[in-house]
């Protein structure tokens, strides 16, 4: 299984950083090689260009940007979704990682 690059986007890029840590931990525990990072909405575009992102997850507070991102990601074939509210609220890294992997199709 190749390395997975998972990008999280929220309004500030800060509330998701805790989630990133927890997801990374979950990935490590499974022996999964993953590059997980969080950025703010304004930095997202640049990262989509520069990194080989496999999947993008949006924080629930910026779910309104989904359509906008869909337009940008569809041509590249990168899947995206809004992070499950419950998992986000409880910072459940395990579940969010599952969500990301499911979107990639694994």
């Amino acid at each position: 299984m190749s390395k997975k690059t998972i990008m999280l986007v929220c309004s500030a890029g800060m509330s998701t950083s805790l989630l990133v840590t927890k997801m990374q931990k979950a990935a490590d525990a499974r022996g999964l090689e993953a590059d997980i990072f969080a950025v703010s909405a304004s930095e997202a575009d640049q990262n989509i260009e520069s990194k080989d992102v496999n999947v993008l997850l949006l924080g629930p507070q910026v779910r309104f940007m989904k359509a906008q991102f869909e337009g940008k990601l569809a041509p590249k074939g990168i899947p995206l979704d809004v992070i499950d509210m419950k998992d986000y609220g409880m910072m459940n890294g395990e579940n969010v990682l599952n969500q990301a992997l499911k979107l990639i199709g694994e």
Binding site: A12, M14, G89
Partner: peptide
Amino acid sequence: EPGVDAAILIHLAFMVDKLKNGEKAR
């Protein structure tokens, strides 16, 4: 939207933390 309120709440909590630490705002 239900659930978004929780996300905003978390966002605010982290914002308070960052501002207290003197981190730069966006």
